[in-house]
Design a protein around this nucleic acid. Structure first.
Lengths: 201, 201
DNA sequence: TTAATTTTGTGCGATCCAGTACATAAATAT
DNA sequence: ATATTTATGTACTGGATCGCACAAAATTAA
């Protein structure tokens, strides 16, 4: 939906006063704290630094804004995960790094907000099929990323990389849930560290 | 949660026209589908079969009603889990039964609603500390129940029963999340069955 | 400079919602 | 029978919320 291939097009009307990615990042904070249903457009537009009509014109209604924010959050998270998993070290070390980074993010002060998909998209899924679809795609992308890492490792062929990925994903989701409910980072780290050798056995 | 110890007390005024447990069960359906924030008191009172003033008099405001519903759901779930875990068969078989029962419940038609704690309480936790506290207590109770079962089993002492319980709990939460987002029961069952021997190795 | 185009910002309106007042009903106590 | 106590049901209110209309502003095209 952007001026694709960066053709230096002169967009013909009044120029936008905001950057899409920056708005999505600001809005993400509100959605992650309050969830989709409890986040009001007033809060969202205030956080974004632009007013409601501009939000509507640029992103559509609240559900569309949420979905775009969720996709933005999900794809950047997967990219970050891919990067760590493509780094150096054993698969155990890289998976451990992924968990530690996730825990740092999930438990960042002041309030531990966990993961946007698990913590806020899941609740809306039964009543908002588009949100459910986006969340499902993003979890699949996360597990695909993990599966690639396991496939490229020298672990035993059994369990399969796909099975290991489902397991590693499950541990990540459980960490996100417990973080949002208030478990301390130290406990989460201990749990994650105990699970890495089980997944990579 | 019924008229405990059945004291035959004559309650002095007009008798209530409803049963507390039944109201909580009806209300639970609304909260599980919509979540706390999106559930309106009109929907809740209609589902309960009584009007808002009666709801307020009996349960307090929406947050208190939600917390009582959550505790009702959580304690009955833990009781059911305890029962299965105290049954016959190997620990693998009993844990497998717990997962199969959970998956049946989480994916019950028409809409797959998952677990109330993971699916609806988590999102409210940052903004509603009492909900977070109740959710945290209930997850702890679930893991205590699992820990008792592992402690009573003849599995190797390492990993500890507590570590196995955290792991088994994590798998359950991951199942609940994926169920709510739309994963099919068959896939969830395959995943759970693949995890049981890993937890009980 | 004038017209065309797109964004911005104030502000409105219709709806919904949480919580409560008030009168009525149904039971027990005296 | 009358008073007391508790529950029910209607109806209301103040406030919040979503989405949009409309005019002003900023930029390019001609």
């Amino acid at each position: 939906m952007r001026t694709s291939t960066e053709p230096k097009k002169k967009p013909r009307g009044r120029p936008r006063s905001f950057d899409t990615a920056e708005v999505l990042e600001r809005v993400r904070g509100v959605f992650m704290e309050k969830g989709f249903a409890a986040a009001s457009l007033d809060e969202l537009s205030e956080a974004a630094g632009l007013n409601r009509p501009s939000l509507y014109a640029a992103f559509g209604d609240k559900e569309q804004l949420y979905i775009q924010t969720l996709r933005y959050y999900g794809t950047t998270s997967v990219e970050a995960m891919d990067k760590v998993l493509a780094g150096s070290g054993t698969i155990e070390q890289r998976l451990g790094k992924v968990y530690m980074a996730a825990i740092d993010f999930y438990t960042a002060p002041p309030s531990k907000l966990g993961c946007m998909i698990v913590g806020t998209a899941a609740v809306e899924s039964p009543t908002h099929p588009q949100i459910a679809a986006a969340a499902s795609e993003l979890l699949a992308a996360i597990e695909k990323s993990l599966e690639r890492a396991f496939a490229g490792s020298s672990l035993p062929a059994e369990p399969t990389p796909a099975a290991r990925a489902r397991m590693a994903g499950a541990i990540m989701y459980a960490i996100a849930i417990r973080a949002r409910i208030g478990m301390k980072a130290a406990e989460l780290r201990a749990f994650a560290n105990s699970m890495v050798p089980v997944i990579c056995r």
